[in-house]
Design a binder for these strands. Structure first.
Lengths: 212, 212, 212, 212
DNA sequence: GATGAATGAGCGTTCATTCAT
DNA sequence: GATGAATGAACGCTCATTCAT
């Protein structure tokens, strides 16, 4: 068809080139950040790895930090969705709630690992960069609030132990995110499948009374 | 006694002065690391804060990194003791096991907070420095092994659910250390007392069957 | 007439377009130089302000410097005319010679102020660029020669004190150009009208004997 | 004498070395600024010319600009003194007032030439750096005020023409400083002695009525 | 001719480290 | 041992200029 020909000949070939270059830089950055961390990766390194000049780097990004800040927001959104899309209020009454919890835990770990290099780098900045820390905190607070909503519902439905709902939401969120992060930092190695199982068990037994 | 004489009149006054200088440097480093983090603290800053010359700094330490490595080892040992000194095999059969667990959790958080600045700094390096990462991992592995020993005992005594002992040890250790670390990085703020309570509950319910 | 046809239908429309593009660049350069000075105006800025590509900039000008050099020549010619068109040998015997002098002084100051931004920029380069300095010097020398011619005539006609004609020409030229430049650089602020009056008085009393 | 021995063995040889290094940098800066101007002289160039490392440059000066700012203040003070130390109110009634004026003019030119390279460089910055411009303006204003004081006195004593005292002070100051600056920028070359003579004549005839 | 993405030498600056005193 | 002036490699970043389209 004529249309497919039109698609294969982009309106503006220059913009396509730009996009490609930008992507080359992003990919090079991800790779180097993964290998060396944020600080030890220089903008010259990134450009060189991407096969472009330093000048090009600064055409597309104001600096190293801004590159990462942008990526961070994307990551955070994706992660949030991956976790909570499979964890709706109605699921609380499912017979397979436990499996759902396990799935949410697994999703968190899997998602973090998928972008392992970036999560490492982000956490490197979290400790030094107030902006990163603030954004990260906001994401955590949002997740905790979401969990609290769910647990609170379960609580009202008499599904849970007599617990401190706020504290439970806080702890559960921390526990899942932190262990996921551990798999990212590589600070410990334990069979992922068994760890997920244990984590899900722990959360389930902590919050919910045994059913039937 | 000869010993007390030796202590009050050091055989070598120079060595005493050395030790004092070294300690001044360490203390200055701790203070500055706490305030500014590792990267933003220069060796000149440390020397200047300690009231010694940069030259002296390099007499006692090969570099900034080695100084931190030393500090790290001290920290790790102290933390390990604080946690496990109150958690012996015999405690498993105590009626107040739960309180013991809570105490161990509290100890971890308190200890980390006591040296909050340093833990931050160490975690800054963990992500970039293989040596730090390795030492840190070793400490984690050691803690996990210790926990596994305890849980295994409990398991054999029929105190626990039918659980994956290894996975449980791993998860419990991660959970406690990570949440403690969260209080260090300031990534989230929740009333410590309630968090400790929740964490202890979670661990207890996860591992142990309800008693009578 | 053929001429009017030629004007309304240019032989080569491309050349007309070229000229227009070139002029757009020149105007953009003038505006930006005025606002930011020479160094702080990049060639990318100029092209962008002119609404053309950097590439086009380099089609019409070898570089930023050459652009300014062109502008400089225009400026210098215009200034020279403004001053000396009202100062002819025959005016020396006019009864209103003093008014003529005042007018020449005023013209110099007014002309410089009209292109104030550009004169600033030119003087920025004068100190660093030998070519600019040389051209500027040539203009000065030409002005001094013109003045010397006039003063020499007056001298021969017995209108002046017994003065060093060459030195007088030199000083008078410097004085007028320099004070004009002061109003350009904004290094001092004094009511222009009174300054012009004073300057004219000074020159008149210096060179000419009182008349009648 | 013991004292001379003490003097030849400075209390702190390190401070002497520092001072020497700093001076080497200043001298190198002056030389290079002279040759290439401010912008074209890099801090690396200065360090290299001074035979020290870039690091040393930044030990003694926060940056290139601060180096020049410091020097500027010194220059300005010295110049002010050189001019006005020989031009006191009482001199107005001297029979050799004209010689005094000539001397002040000569001092200005000579002083500027003595530090010719620096004055060039300062004037380079005057056009781009608000701080420099402001400081320079302040010096000019101070000089004009001083001159106005003198001319005003002469005016009250009936020594002058019926002139606009403020305008006269302004113009005289500008004229002298600007012509001096011309000798610094090298924008014109005329025998200095004759130029000074002419300038002094001009000022004298402009302000003062002929004396007997 | 016109475009604008790409270039890369070179800038100002920092700081871990050395070494003459 | 102690000092601190000196070092210089290496960083992040700019911008005049080129050249494939």
């Amino acid at each position: 068809m004529g249309e497919s020909i039109a698609l294969s000949v982009p309106a503006n070939p220059k913009q396509a080139r730009s996009k490609k270059t930008k992507e080359k830089i992003v990919q090079a950055a991800i790779q180097l950040f993964r290998q060396r961390g944020y600080e030890k990766t220089t903008s010259n390194d990134i450009a060189s790895e991407a096969g472009v000049s330093v000048g090009s780097f600064y055409v597309y990004f104001t600096d190293k930090r801004q590159l990462l800040l942008t990526i961070f927001d994307r990551l955070a959104d994706e992660l949030y969705k991956n976790i909570f899309d499979g964890l709706k209020p109605e699921h609380l009454f499912d017979s397979n709630l436990r499996r759902r919890i396990k799935q949410a835990v697994a999703n968190t770990i899997i998602d973090k690992q998928k972008h392992s290099g970036l999560h490492r780098v982000v956490s490197e900045l979290l400790l030094k960069d107030a902006d990163f820390a603030a954004r990260h905190k906001a994401v955590m607070v949002r997740s905790i609030a979401k969990l609290q909503e769910l647990i609170s519902l379960a609580d009202k439905a008499g599904l849970t132990w007599n617990i401190d709902v706020e504290a439970a939401a806080f702890i559960v969120q921390r526990v899942v995110f932190d262990v996921s992060q551990d798999y990212v930092t590589g600070c410990c190695e334990f069979d992922k499948e068994r760890a997920i199982e244990a984590l899900a068990d722990m959360i389930y037994r902590f919050v919910f009374k045994p059913r039937d």
